[in-house]
Amino acid sequence: MLQKAEMVESVDFQFLSAQNKKDYWENGFLVIKSLFTREEVKKLRSIAEKDLVETEIMVKGDQSGNLTKLKMWDRPEDDIYGMFSRNERITDNVEILFGEPIYIYSAKMILKNAREGGAWEWHQDYGYWYNYGCLLPTMNSCIVAVDAANKENGCLQVLRGSHKIGRINHDRINGQTVADDEKINEAVKKFELEYIEMQPGDALIFDGNLLHRSDSNMSDFDRWSFIASYNTVANKPYKKVREYGNYEELKKVPRSAILDFEMAVQG
């Protein structure tokens, strides 16, 4: 079980226990139920519907020609997305896992709409982060369910323990970075496939080398999600690969920041 923090602010909070940390490193991922409230993710969805304009949305195709839309940020700002990615409910727990200071590497909204959201092929996030100047795999991501995620609408699939393989070579196909077929064919025989079904506000933290994918969304329900990715400060890129530079110090926001931001918008 997750340990409750001794001091709870305006929203509930859970610190990862020693057993949680052990499970994470054994399996390559950890699900945290209700890390954020329904009210908080509803606010995120409401704002995203208004301010994610089509000209800023990236569209990626899968091998069947289905499309998935996403918006990506290379740095956190003082907006609703930053209130999630910089939130101590995530950042403190990621630092517990790594045992050292971290910063936000990137963030994105995945807009997997009903009847059109394309599949993501098998890949590791570190499969391409490595090529961006991050020498070590001390990197992970936290995906927050904005809508309910299940098999019907293309929830995330993982190969439990597959992060132990280490980095696999990847190729660029239809705008997606896809893991080597030969390695994937062997990995699916060796590691257990698990569908990560989540309710709005649930979070999944997963290792940068964990193999994961998702099916197309052929249901009548959207599956939107927010993903923040983290790197250890000691592993910041050794070369400049993005416009703003290699690294920006993490400025955490308190656990109540999302609700505070909501009040500021309403005021």
Results as ranks from 00 to 15, higher is better:
Arg213Lys: 13
Ile102Ala: 00
Glu88Arg: 13
Glu49Trp: 11
His212Cys: 02
Val253Met: 10
Gln3Glu: 13
Trp224Ile: 07
Lys42Pro: 00
Asn150Gln: 08
Lys189Gln: 15
Lys190Trp: 08
Ser141Ala: 15
Gly154Met: 00
Ser46Cys: 05
Val158Asn: 07
Ser141Ile: 03
Ile96Thr: 15
Tyr244His: 14
Val31Ser: 03
Lys190Thr: 12
Lys240Leu: 11
Asp125Glu: 15
Trp73Cys: 00
Arg255Trp: 03
Ile57Gln: 14
Lys21Ala: 03
Ala149Ile: 03
Asp51Gly: 03
Asn27Ser: 14
Cys142Trp: 04
Ile32Ser: 01
Thr138Lys: 15
Arg242Lys: 13
Leu250Gly: 06
Gln266Phe: 10
Leu2Tyr: 15
Leu159Met: 10
Lys50Ser: 09
Asp62Gly: 03
Ala203Cys: 15
Gln124Met: 04
Phe206Gly: 01
Gly28Pro: 02
Leu204Lys: 08
Trp120Arg: 08
Asn20Glu: 10
Lys251Ser: 12
Gly154Ala: 04
Lys183Trp: 04
Pro200Ile: 04
Asp180Ser: 06
Val146Met: 10
Tyr130Met: 08
Asp180Gln: 10
Asn140Arg: 04
Asp202Asn: 12
Ser219Trp: 00
Asn150Pro: 00
Asp78Leu: 08
Lys71Glu: 07
Asn217Phe: 09
Ser10Thr: 07
Lys151Met: 04
Lys240Val: 13
Lys252His: 05
Leu136Phe: 14
Glu26Asn: 13
Glu182Gly: 09
Arg38Gln: 09
Pro254Gln: 00
Asp260Pro: 01
Ser34Met: 03
Pro200Gly: 13
Thr177Glu: 11
Gly99Lys: 02
Thr37Val: 04
Asn20Ser: 12
Thr91Ala: 03
Leu156His: 02
Val178Thr: 06
Val144Ile: 15
Asp180His: 12
Asp147Val: 02
Leu52His: 10
Val233Arg: 14
Lys183His: 07
Glu262Gln: 13
Lys189His: 13
Glu197His: 11
Ile57Lys: 14
